[in-house]
Design a protein around this nucleic acid. Structure first.
Lengths: 156, 156
DNA sequence: TTGCTCCTCACGTCACGTGAGGTGGC
DNA sequence: TTGCTCCTCACGTCACGTGAGGTGGC
């Protein structure tokens, strides 16, 4: 009974992941998200939990890695593969060669994403170090001024 | 003699920081970078080392923190303050109250930047953890398949 | 039946990219 | 003098934002 997943409208999905319906439609138009299957022209789009997760993944990769939607379309194949894989897994015992293919492709794309994450972290750390160094200098100057100022203007 | 800084053209600056002349002009138009002072209309823009550093800072904040140019215009006041401060510092012993003002403002803006850096790092770490977890699962499935496959297809 | 969300154009915006046509410094 | 880089419009593009006008499900 809890089998048939509850279908969500585009506005609900948008709010869940923190974006707008327009963005979701745009991603669909670009092929980043799968189009609601067998949707009559003009009919409402309906989504499952799986679509929400996929959108979350896409958005997070875009935001935190600063990727273009073109970049995402390559990396997002990994997620599609993951969904397909899960379906095949649950759908029946498929060809193990096929399974291996999907898994190895997913591994390649995951490693690519992990490499991008590592680079980002290096950038972040470099920026953090520079900012901390500047902060030290500023507080240092303030300390010098501080004693002066306190001695000079201590009468209030 | 090494006093008068070498002036750079916009293309040289662009290449130094890894961007394009168009972007530099656009940032100037938005007020993110100071316009080349007293430039005749149509004349070449000339930059000093200080401008290169400022542009680097602006670009790094934008790229690694994912900020809009509008956001940058607020945070970038810190860098302007820093440049002004350095000029005043070298230019002579100014009003210590003025110095303190500049330093405290710079401190506020640096702390704001550091807070944004911390948030980014949390995002990055979360993404890294999720990707690593997925990778573990994929390699796990591959190991299962691996022994099967090796046993079944070991005749080649 | 009344709202509300949804739909599809389609134009606007932000942060530039990319020629078009012309002037100026090594 | 010849290139090369620079200049200023100005239109194009990417990733959406934002109405305009209309249909459909709780």
């Amino acid at each position: 009974m809890t089998e048939d997943a509850k279908r969500l409208r585009i506005g609900e999905v948008a709010e869940l992941v923190g974006t707008t319906p327009r963005t979701i439609r745009y991603y669909e138009e670009l092929g980043l998200l799968p189009a609601s299957e067998s949707r009559e022209p003009g009919a409402h789009r309906l989504y499952e939990q799986r679509d929400v997760e996929r959108l979350r993944d896409v958005m997070r990769l875009k935001e935190t890695l600063g990727l273009s939607l073109e970049d995402l379309r390559e990396l997002a194949a990994a997620e599609v593969g993951r969904a397909e894989l899960r379906d095949e897994w649950h759908g029946g015992i498929d060809d193990p060669i096929r399974r291996r293919q999907i898994l190895e492709e997913a591994l390649v794309l995951l490693d690519r994403q992990l490499e991008l994450v590592r680079r980002r972290r290096v950038e972040i750390d470099g920026l953090a170090d520079d900012l901390a160094e500047r902060r030290r200098r500023v507080t240092g100057h303030l300390r010098e001024l501080g004693t002066e100022s306190t001695q000079a203007g201590g009468s209030r």
